[in-house]
Simulated assay, not measured.
Amino acid sequence: MARRLSCPCGEFIEGEDDDDLVEKTQAHLAEKHPGHEYSREQILFLAF
């Protein structure tokens, strides 16, 4: 099941499943928001 997350910066992140979404979100945070790290649980809590 696809999962989605909307970053406050306006970027929309979509993953094929939970693992893919977490990986893509953590990559986005590392690239665009250095110093902001979220755990898997935090990312999935914000996902829809």
Rank of each mutant, 00 (worst) to 15 (best):
F45P: 00
A47F: 05
C7I: 09
E14P: 03
S39C: 09
H33Y: 03
P8N: 05
F48M: 07
D19G: 04
F12Q: 14
E41Y: 08
A47G: 05
G15M: 04
T25P: 04
E31S: 11
E14M: 07
D17Q: 07
R40V: 10
H28V: 04
I13V: 15
D19V: 01
C9M: 10
H36N: 13
P8F: 08
D17A: 06
Y38F: 15
L5H: 03
F12L: 14
E11Q: 14
D20T: 05
D19F: 01
D18M: 03
V22P: 03
S39F: 08
A27Y: 04
P8R: 11
S39G: 12
G15K: 02
H36T: 12
A27T: 11
E41S: 14
E14F: 00
I13H: 06
R3K: 15
E11D: 12
L21R: 00
C7G: 01
D17H: 10
D20W: 00
L21P: 07
E37N: 12
E11P: 00
L5I: 10
L46A: 13
L29E: 08
E11W: 10
E23W: 09
C7Y: 07
G15H: 04
L44S: 07
K24L: 12
R3E: 06
F45R: 13
L21Q: 01
H33K: 09
G15W: 03
F45C: 04
L46K: 06
G35A: 11
L46C: 11
E16S: 14
E16M: 13
V22D: 06
Y38D: 06
S6I: 13
G10M: 11
D19E: 15
F12N: 11
L29K: 06
C9N: 06
D19L: 03
D20P: 02
Y38K: 15
E37D: 13
D19Q: 10
